[in-house]
Design a protein around this nucleic acid. Structure first.
Length: 554
RNA sequence: CGGGGCGUAGCGCAGUCUGGUCUAGCGCGCCUGCCUUGGGAGCAGGAAGUCACGAGUUCGAAUCUCGUCGCCCCGACCA
């Protein structure tokens, strides 16, 4: 336990670090500007300007909108540690949902979980040349193992006597330490394949950070597999990409393109990198997951050899694949609206909130009783399989200190898929009001839903919302994808309207780099789903065998 | 690492130029009570700050000087 003083000191320093946040000042300006926007939502009028809008509209400033949603929905906040976030319960609950669904899919494809150390001896990292170059610049390094009092007797400094013989690097990814271990595990083809995954944190010393999208420390899973043949490893890389695609589309309701990365975007140390790539509402791309075929690069440098059936010594073939807490950012930016977070039901930590309404004490009793009954019925709807064998989560918001209107707004900001409004007028008719989060305001309300059928209707609605969110996102993605045929058109369209630009490219690193330098657009992927179509590179005019997808990316 | 900005209550800010009126205010939030509850309620009372830190100038410093620390933004870099 912390002492009272220690806690006071902590909170004092927390305030110091956030109070001077200039972005807040900017946001405040935008927020007050937002108050004068057209009142398309009738109930806002009642506020009389007292209660400022807390969420910047997306059209005003998308980056501020994102920050506001993360904050107001209680997903995460900046910590006192530079570049690192505190993931708050609601945000972590979403990550837990993702973990559970993915973990089941990994297990279903034959993988098991394990755990490797946070610390990696420097010389491990030095072994694979490309890998070194890719990560060297962004590593946190442990140099000492003890603190002593400072020279003036105050504070603590690393004890010079405790300097480590060899520095330890905080893992930016675990290929090296895992393949160093695999060396001892693999002697025979019978030891293969190794199909292993770990859930853990990693650190990449990013200079500029954004909550969930890019932080110095983040949570992820990294799968590391070893195989006897190239074909098997390539199949594995492809299989796990398909797992990611399925998860993104069926759980996150986020449509993705799949395909290899260009050379310039490849993972350091990989032979090739496959990715899932999504389009956010501001028409910037988000790399949402990657699956790498690593060839024999790591087996070679860590000496992972085995004897095949004929007794010949062979090097093992490797894959690695990962998704991170960045996906939470992807959900926010795929589905969120100006009211706040919108969660796809299959990832929602809370599916249904029941807001009781009453005036007199006897009304309170009757309403709360009916609310609990309804909650129990909802908990029994047959959605367990669809929800990864987890229950439908229902909450009766019986807090006395807040009025219904406040609760409506609060649960909307937090993205709860369905709200039930239940008051005396409803009870007279044995009915309730259902409000779906994916259609805010009056448009999403179903009045007079009979209490006896409400649970069944809610089960339907949850599935409808999940499907609807995906469909809406897919339409958005398709509506913001363009085939572009000239350099001038490319330069114009990447600025306005933006989005996924399908264009011919001559396949060279030089051209890719030039395009990036001039437009900040990168090749997001070379989609599997592209058609065979000969053409000419938009920049150089050299022959191209098919279009690749360009976008500005997170 | 270069350029800019900012550190005053839990959060957002005013006060700093031009030292005394600051025994440091305001809004939101928080606590108590009353009242309210179908789209972010209202009234009354209250708690809460070593004005980032250190040294100096001065009769007197949130305010002036010097130093230190921290954070944010832009750029380079990147999941």
């Amino acid at each position: 336990m912390f002492s009272r003083d220690a806690l006071a000191e902590r909170s004092a320093s927390a305030s110091r670090l956030t109070a001077d946040h200039p972005r807040n000042a900017v946001t405040a300006n935008l927020v007050s500007a937002a108050v004068v926007r057209p009142y398309n939502l009738p109930w806002r009028r009642k506020q009389g300007g007292r209660m400022a809008e807390k969420i910047t509209p997306r059209a005003t400033n998308y980056a501020d909108w994102y920050q506001d949603v993360v904050k107001e929905a209680g997903l995460a906040e900046n910590s006192d540690v530079r570049g690192c976030m505190v993931i708050k319960p609601h945000g972590y609950a979403i990550w837990e949902k993702m973990q559970r669904a993915l973990d089941r899919m990994f297990k279903d494809t034959g993988h098991v979980n394990a755990y490797f150390p946070l610390f990696i001896p420097r010389h491990f990292l030095e072994k694979e040349a490309e890998h070194v170059e890719g990560f060297a610049k962004e590593c946190a390094v442990v140099t000492h193992h003890r603190l002593i009092a400072g020279p003036d007797g105050k504070g603590l400094v690393p004890d010079p006597a405790s300097k480590l013989e060899e520095e330890l690097v905080i893992r930016p990814t675990s290929e090296t330490i895992i393949w160093n271990t695999y060396r001892n595990w693999v002697q025979s083809y019978r030891d293969l394949p190794i199909l292993l995954n770990q859930w853990c944190n990693v650190v990449r010393w990013e200079m500029r950070t954004r909550l969930f999208l890019r932080t110095a420390e983040f949570l992820w899973q990294e799968g590391h597999t070893a195989h006897a043949t190239q074909q098997e490893a390539e199949e594995e890389a492809r299989r796990m990409l398909e797992v990611y695609r399925t998860f993104a589309e069926e759980w996150m309701a986020m449509p993705v393109l799949t395909g290899p990365k260009s050379e310039g975007q490849r993972f350091p140390g990989a032979v090739y990198t496959l990715c899932i790539e999504a389009l956010m509402q501001d028409k910037r791309a988000l790399q949402a997951g990657t699956s790498h075929f690593l060839g024999q690069n790591f087996a070679k440098v860590f000496g992972v050899q085995f004897q095949d059936r004929e007794g010949k010594l062979e090097l093992a073939w490797a894959t690695s694949w990962g998704v991170s807490t960045r996906l939470v950012g992807g959900v926010i930016m795929t589905h969120g609206d100006d009211q706040g977070l919108v969660l796809p039901p299959r990832l929602a930590p809370l599916h249904v909130v029941i807001v009781p309404i009453f005036k007199k004490p006897e009304e309170r009793t009757a309403v709360l009783q009916a609310a609990e009954q309804l909650a129990a019925a909802i908990r029994n709807v047959p959605l367990r399989e669809w929800l990864n064998y987890e229950p439908v989560v229902v909450k009766v918001d019986d807090r006395d200190q807040y009025q219904p209107g406040f609760k409506f707004t609060e649960w909307e900001v937090k993205g709860v898929p369905i709200r039930v409004e239940l008051g005396p007028k409803d009870l007279e008719k044995n009915a309730c009001v259902l409000a779906r989060r994916d259609r805010p305001g009056k448009a999403g309300k179903e009045m007079g839903v009979p209490l006896t059928g409400a649970a069944a209707r809610i089960a339907e609605l949850l599935k409808e919302i999940q499907a609807g969110l995906f469909e809406k996102a897919r339409q958005f993605r398709d509506a913001n994808s363009y085939e572009v045929n000239s350099w001038d058109e490319f330069k114009a369209k990447i600025d306005e309207p933006g989005g996924f630009l399908w264009a011919h490219w001559d396949g060279t690193r030089e051209t890719e780099d030039r395009i990036a330098a001039e437009t900040k657009a990168t090749i997001r992927c070379i989609p599997f789903e592209r058609k065979n179509e000969a053409g000419k590179c938009i920049l150089t005019g050299s022959p191209s065998e098919g279009r690749v997808v360009f976008a500005r990316a997170y």
